[in-house]
C-alpha cells in the first residue's frame, strides 16, 4: 500500500529532520512510529501527506499503491489527500473549523471527492461508525459543543468518509484524558478492522502503539534506529534507545 524509501527531509540549512527512512505498509497493515518530540516522526507523516512547507527539501521516494508521491505538484496531491490518503491530527479543536457545524465539515470532505447529494446520509453513517451514540445531534453541533473525545471521533469520521487506503494518525490521543484515550483507541481499532484501511500511527507512547499496531518503527534524531514486528521488538529490543523506551514503559506499569 505505502512504500517509503530513503526518505530525507531537510529545512533550510539545518541538518535534516528526517534522514534516510525506509518502511513499507501492506494493504490493511498497521505501522506505529514512536519517538520523542523532535525525533522527526511528525515530519515523516507530513512528508507522506505532502503537507510540508515549500521550503522543505524532500528526498527519496514515497509510493502509494505504486504511484510516486515525492515531487507531485500540489494540485495533484490535494486530489489524493482526503481521498486515498487522509490524516487525523493531535489537536481536534484546532483541526476543526470552529465556525462550521461538524456535519457540514465532514460532508465537505466527502463532496470534495465524490458526486451526488447523499452526503447527509453518508455523514450520519460515518459518525455512527466512529461510535457516536447520536450522529444527528453531533452533525448539527459546533466543535466547541463537543467534548475532546467526540471531536477526535468527528475528525476520524472526516478522515474515513471517503474510504481511504491509508489513514495517518499523528498522536491522535495525546491531548485526551486516559479514559477517553482508551475508548478512542478501541474505536480506531474497530474502524480499521471494519474498513480494512492501512494505518500509520504516530505516538510518543510505546504502550499505545503496541496496542494498535503489528509493526513498530522507532525514531531518534531523524533516523530509524529499529523496526520490527511488535511482539518481537518488545521482547528483544536491540537498539539501546528502544531498550530504554521499553524499560521505561515496563517500569511505568502500575496494574498489578
Amino acid at each position: 500500500m505505502l512504500a517509503v524509501e530513503h526518505l530525507t527531509v531537510a529545512f533550510g540549512r539545518r541538518p535534516p529532520a528526517v534522514r534516510d527512512i525506509s518502511f513499507a505498509i501492506p494493504e490493511g497493515g498497521r505501522l506505529g512510529i514512536i519517538g520523542a518530540s523532535g525525533s522527526g516522526k511528525s515530519v515523516t507523516a507530513l512528508a507522506i501527506m505532502g503537507l510540508l512547507p515549500e521550503y522543505a527539501r524532500v528526498g527519496g521516494s514515497v509510493k502509494l499503491g505504486g504511484a510516486e508521491l515525492v515531487g507531485l505538484p500540489d494540485h495533484e496531491y490535494s486530489k489524493l489527500r482526503g481521498d486515498a490518503l487522509t490524516m487525523v491530527f493531535q489537536e481536534p479543536m484546532t483541526a476543526l473549523d470552529p465556525t462550521m457545524r461538524v456535519g457540514r465539515q465532514i460532508a465537505e470532505a466527502y463532496r470534495l471527492h465524490a458526486q451526488g447529494s447523499k452526503a447527509r446520509d453518508e455523514v450520519l453513517r460515518v459518525l455512527a461508525a466512529v461510535g457516536m451514540p447520536d450522529p444527528a445531534r453531533v452533525a448539527d453541533s459546533y466543535p466547541h459543543e463537543l467534548s475532546g473525545g467526540q471531536r477526535q471521533r468527528a475528525l476520524t469520521a472526516m478522515a474515513v468518509i471517503n474510504r481511504p487506503g491509508l489513514v495517518v494518525f499523528d498522536e491522535p490521543t495525546t491531548a485526551l484524558d486516559m479514559l477517553v484515550q482508551a475508548q478512542v483507541l478501541e474505536m480506531i481499532d474497530g474502524l480499521l478492522r471494519a474498513t480494512g484501511a492501512s494505518c500509520l500511527f504516530i505516538s510518543h507512547d510505546i504502550a499505545v502503539v503496541a496496542q494498535l499496531c503489528a509493526h513498530i518503527l522507532v525514531m531518534q534524531d531523524g533516523q530509524a534506529v529499529e523496526q520490527g514486528e511488535t511482539g518481537q521488538l518488545l521482547r528483544a529490543p536491540r537498539h539501546p534507545y528502544t531498550q530504554a523506551l521499553v524499560a521505561a514503559a515496563r517500569k511505568g506499569a502500575v496494574r498489578g
Partner: peptide, 11 residues
C-alpha cells in the same frame, strides 16, 4: 477502577 484499567500498558 476504570482509570486504572484505561492506562495503556505493554503486553
Amino acid at each position: 477502577r476504570s482509570l486504572l484499567a484505561a492506562i495503556p500498558e505493554l503486553p
